[in-house]
Design a protein around this nucleic acid. Structure first.
Length: 271
DNA sequence: CTTTTGACCTGACAGC
DNA sequence: TGCTGTCAGGTCAAAA
């Protein structure tokens, strides 16, 4: 469910409730997430204080005194800050109880998310080690994108989804950014010019930045920490708008499948 | 090496 | 009211 803007929205939402708080205990009701929630989390985290909440790709990193909680929301994960005695709902799998009477509660119906504990630097964790550059960072440049796309027949949409190329971009924002760049999602990545790569990079950055400002996109069930939806879906130009009028030229937006996942584009605005 | 496919899960929704 | 089929914002591992 969440892409970079949604994860960033969650990061900003939980940070003020978490940083400086000491963990009292960890309650695991169901450890069967994408990988089992490690017993070391419950053994080692209590007694430690959270020092910062940062993000790498779609991972949230809750740094404590002698380790880091690595949290990924998968497709359906969400976190809330609730009073510790709030009865858990279905799919509320883990509580991290803090010393102020509140807890960080993780809900994840599909259980594609992950909650891990890293004693060492989380950046060298096997899940984070081989990730590509941050899309809003200085390393994601048109020259970089041009270089890594040479000789690739993969669809542009799928190149943007590849976390080894660039992180944080999911299916919604990949489609939206390619609309903004004027390139069809199914176009072969290798068949792009330097100028087109520059347009893609600029479009990715602008799309993500705007979405963060809007508090993310809520299509079905994304909620921020306060239980409120994001507002960027009102700004979506093509995603999930098959058959509707292109906001730029009025043509009918097309939908197609690339691999197993749907893609959307305007046949007149995108080459 | 690149690209595609299958796998992991539950829930919402459309259509009958 | 049910049933069935389809789809979903992620991403890893294995197959081709």
């Amino acid at each position: 469910m969440p892409e970079l803007p949604e994860v960033e929205t969650v990061r900003g939402g939980i940070a003020p409730h978490v940083v400086g708080r000491r963990v009292v205990r960890v309650i695991v009701r169901d450890r069967r997430l994408r990988w089992p929630v490690p017993t070391s989390l419950g053994n080692e985290l209590p007694g430690q204080t959270f020092r910062s909440v940062t993000r790498r790709a779609k991972y949230l990193l809750l740094s404590a005194d002698r380790g880091t909680v690595i949290l990924h929301l998968g497709m359906s994960g969400s976190v809330r800050i609730v009073p510790r005695d709030t009865p858990p709902a279905k799919h509320d799998h883990v509580d991290i109880v803090m010393d102020n009477g509140y807890c960080l509660r993780l809900r994840d119906p599909r259980r594609f998310g992950a909650l891990l504990w890293s004693r060492a630097d989380p950046i060298s964790h096997r899940l984070l080690r081989n990730l590509g550059p941050e899309p809003l960072g200085a390393d994601f440049t048109s020259e970089y994108l041009f270089r890594v796309s040479r000789g690739r027949r993969i669809a542009l949409r799928d190149l943007l989804l590849d976390s080894h190329i660039v992180v944080g971009v999911g299916n919604i924002y990949a489609n939206e950014a390619l609309f903004a760049a004027g390139l069809r999602p199914q176009r072969a990545a290798g068949r792009t010019t330097r100028a087109q790569c520059a347009a893609i990079v600029a479009a990715v950055r602008r799309t993500l930045t705007r979405a963060i400002r809007a508090g993310g996109t809520t299509l079905r069930d994304f909620q921020n920490v306060d239980g409120l939806p994001g507002y960027f879906q009102q700004t979506l130009q093509v995603y999930n708008r098959k058959g509707e009028a292109c906001p730029r030229c009025g043509s009918r937006i097309k939908g197609l499948r690339i691999g197993q996942r749907s893609a959307f584009y305007c046949p007149d605005c995108q080459l």
